[in-house]
Simulated scan of single mutants.
Amino acid sequence: METIGIVVIVMAAVASLTKIIDVVTTILRVNVHTEINPIGRFLFGRLGVKGGCWATFVVWSAFCMGVAWPIADHGDIFDRVGAIIIYSVLTYLNVSTGLFNMKGIAIPFTRSIIRFYCWLGRKLRVY
């Protein structure tokens, strides 16, 4: 495997590991009623906050690594560089979500995600 393929695998692992920051801060600071993400709220209602967070982590990690291996082995240079960029952004967003959960500090992208979740929650509400 080439060096850039190894970098893709490492970045996928880092994106998976930084999801733990999001999971732990969510478990510590968020409950079913304060969860902004309507899909997460549904999942927390079914599995509890801890179960929902860890289920999300397992799915997230499986997806990250499941996408990384084929790109690292068979992708061209553009696929690999694109994967590295995407995993870097996901890592940044995981850390910023943890920061928002613990301190309430929201970067502009986090604020836009909050607005999206509010919109999605209104659209998924059953009348």
Rank of each mutant, 00 (worst) to 15 (best):
V49F: 09
K50N: 06
K123S: 06
F57A: 15
A68T: 04
C118Y: 11
A68P: 04
A68Y: 03
I86Y: 07
G121W: 04
S16G: 15
A106M: 14
F100D: 00
G82H: 06
A15R: 01
D79R: 06
F109T: 10
P38N: 06
Y87L: 06
M102A: 15
V67W: 04
A62W: 05
V32Q: 14
I21S: 05
A55E: 09
V7Y: 05
T56H: 14
I77F: 09
A106T: 02
V8I: 10
M1N: 09
N101Q: 05
T110Y: 02
S16C: 14
R115E: 13
G75P: 02
I21C: 09
V59W: 03
I105G: 00
L99K: 03
A62K: 01
T110L: 11
I71V: 14
T25S: 15
Y117H: 15
R122G: 08
G75L: 07
M102T: 12
M65P: 01
L124E: 03
R80T: 02
A12M: 10
L93P: 00
V81P: 00
V89W: 12
T34L: 10
Y92G: 05
I114S: 01
I113D: 01
M65F: 12
A83K: 03
I77D: 07
S88G: 15
G52M: 10
I105C: 01
L120C: 09
F78A: 13
F57W: 14
I4Y: 07
M11R: 04
R41V: 00
E2L: 11
P108T: 08
T26S: 13
V30D: 08
I113T: 08
C53F: 03
V81M: 12
R115T: 08
A106R: 15
M1R: 10
S61Q: 04
I105A: 09
M102H: 12
L28Y: 03
T25I: 11
I84M: 08
G45V: 15
A106P: 00
L17S: 06
V67Q: 08
I21A: 11
D22S: 14
V32M: 14
F42Q: 13
I27F: 08
I36K: 07
W119C: 03
I9D: 05
S96H: 00
Y92R: 05
Y117T: 00
A15M: 08
A83G: 01
H33Q: 15
N101M: 08
M1E: 06
K50V: 12
S61H: 07
P38L: 09
L93F: 09
G66V: 04
G40P: 02
L43Y: 02
S61D: 05
T25E: 05
